[in-house]
C-alpha cells in the first residue's frame, strides 16, 4: 500500500462538518471516483464525523489517497480522545444506539464503504478507519 497524499483536519465544532465534507469530496473527485461512490464516501464521512462530535467533542481526521494492487482509493482515519466504546461488537449492530439516534450510524456507515475498521479503548478514545476505492470494489 502506497500513500500518495496526506492531509489532516481538526474537527472541533459542528461548523467544521461541511468544509470537511467538501475536502473529502475534493480528494474523491481528484482520483476520478464516480458520483455514487463519492456520495457514499462523503455520507460515511459525515456520519463518522458527527459521531466524533457527539460522543468525543471532536477530534482529528486524516485524509489520504492510497494505492494498492493497482487500485486508487481514499482512506479516512477518524481519531478522537473521547470516552471510547464499551462494546464495539454491540455498537456495530443495526438498531443499537446509546443516544437518541436511529442507531444506523456505525453499521450503516460500514455498508457505505469498502473497508471499515474500528478500534476503541475505554477512557482513551476511538479510531475508525475507512477506505473507499475509486471503482467502489
Amino acid at each position: 500500500m502506497i500513500v500518495m497524499t496526506k492531509d489532516t483536519m481538526q474537527i472541533v465544532r459542528e461548523q467544521d462538518v461541511v468544509p470537511f465534507r467538501n475536502r473529502v469530496r475534493e480528494y474523491a473527485a481528484k482520483i476520478g471516483m464516480s458520483l455514487v461512490n463519492q456520495t457514499k464516501l462523503i455520507t460515511a464521512a459525515s456520519e463518522l464525523v458527527r459521531n466524533m462530535l457527539k460522543y468525543a467533542n471532536g477530534g482529528k481526521v486524516l485524509i489520504e489517497i492510497i494505492s494498492k494492487n493497482a487500485q486508487t482509493g481514499v482512506r479516512l482515519t477518524f481519531i478522537d480522545e473521547g470516552p471510547g466504546i464499551a462494546n464495539v461488537q454491540q455498537a456495530m449492530q443495526d438498531g443499537f444506539s446509546t443516544g437518541k439516534s436511529l442507531g444506523l450510524g456505525l453499521p450503516g456507515t460500514k455498508r457505505l464503504v469498502n473497508e471499515f475498521d474500528i478500534k476503541s479503548t475505554l477512557g482513551e478514545g476511538t479510531t475508525v478507519t475507512v477506505i473507499h476505492w475509486k471503482n467502489g470494489r
Binding site: K40, L104, P107, G108
Partner: peptide, 14 residues
C-alpha cells in the same frame, strides 16, 4: 432527490 443520494440512503438503511 438525486439518484446518488437515494442509493446512498438505501445502503445506509434509511
Amino acid at each position: 432527490m438525486q439518484p446518488a443520494v437515494a442509493i446512498t440512503l438505501v445502503e445506509l438503511g434509511l
